[in-house]
């Protein structure tokens, strides 16, 4: 039984983190990251060819995380696999004990390290969520029975700060209808917009885990503004980090303030330390 689901339905505030599988077969660094994050998190997302770039499969990496004693959130993107592969990976995930799945569309291949790849996008994330829900009910997407159903806790991404809001809201509601029970949001900078999202989605029974980025340096801010689709660091926050004597320290203070506020608004926080993994304990500890 997914602990993430249990905690969220019990109304407990959850903390999730994120680990990226390596580009290569050596998982030492990933294990080290898990060890740093695990004591502070209830579950860890395991990304799937993040940034449209080649990495060890989320499926295997998720199992490694599980074996290390912390619950993974297996991420599945629609970019790299067709409907047969996605469904068979979902079954594989369940058989490996992975109970949380986060379905995402995935960045365009042209953004990654294999820009000549065919973006599959046979399904979109909503359709994939619907299929995962069908598997929970014991059938595949063709409505044929499965020998053994799954019981996934299905999550999706949400973008409270990306306008137009009516489009975002409609999209989130559509995902809920498809079977999504929790959302992990893009990094939040504007708490009023987070509040707006939580208030709109909670009545539908969906939980919202708000994203926090640790903006450890001006370079990271530039990278986000220039390279990360669907995300912009507001000027006031960017200036605060840029003008700080010790940007990393200021980023930790900022993240702490954000987490403190999120505790009063959302159902959980998803912390993205961008390399400052060692500071996660401090951020969480000082925010409660």
């Amino acid at each position: 039984m997914s602990r993430l689901r249990d905690m969220l339905s019990a109304g407990e505030f959850v903390v999730t983190g994120e680990v990226a599988p390596p580009k290569g077969a050596d998982v030492t660094a990933m294990r080290a990251a898990v060890e740093l994050l695990a004591p502070h998190c209830h579950a860890l997302n395991v990304t799937d060819n993040q940034g449209a770039s080649l990495h060890l499969a989320s499926l295997a990496a998720s199992r490694i995380v599980l074996d290390m004693g912390i619950e993974p959130i297996f991420q599945q993107t629609c970019r790299d696999r067709n409907r047969l592969a996605l469904q068979s990976d979902l079954l594989a995930a369940w058989s490996l004990g992975l109970e949380n799945v986060l379905v995402v569309t995935g960045d365009d291949p042209r953004a990654g390290d294999h820009p000549n790849a065919k973006g599959v996008f046979d399904l979109d994330s909503t359709q994939l969520a619907e299929i995962a829900r069908g598997m929970n009910e014991g059938h595949d997407m063709m409505d044929r029975p499965l020998a053994g159903a799954t019981d996934f806790f299905i999550g999706a991404a949400m973008f409270p700060e990306a306008e137009p809001w009516d489009v975002q809201l409609a999209r989130a509601e559509q995902k809920i209808e498809a079977g999504v029970r929790f959302f992990q949001t893009q990094a939040i900078f504007d708490m009023t917009r987070l509040k707006r999202a939580v208030e709109a989605l909670r009545p539908h029974g969906a939980k919202v885990i708000a994203g926090v980025l640790v903006l450890k340096s001006p370079r990271v801010i530039d990278f986000i503004n220039e390279r990360l689709a669907g995300l912009m660091v507001p000027d006031a926050i960017a200036d605060r980090i840029r003008s700080a004597d010790d940007p990393a320290e200021e980023a930790i203070v900022l993240a702490t303030e954000q987490v403190r506020e999120i505790r009063t608004i959302a159902d959980g926080v998803h912390i993205m330390p961008l390399g400052l993994d060692a500071a996660v304990g401090r951020i969480l500890g000082n925010s409660s």
Binding site: T105, D124, R171, A229, G230, M232
Partner: peptide
């Protein structure tokens, strides 16, 4: 991306990610 249901997460201020 040829998505039937969207927008994807890269949409920003109404504009396309790609």
């Amino acid at each position: 991306k040829g998505l039937l249901n969207g927008p994807c997460g890269g949409m920003w201020e109404g504009m396309c990610e790609v």
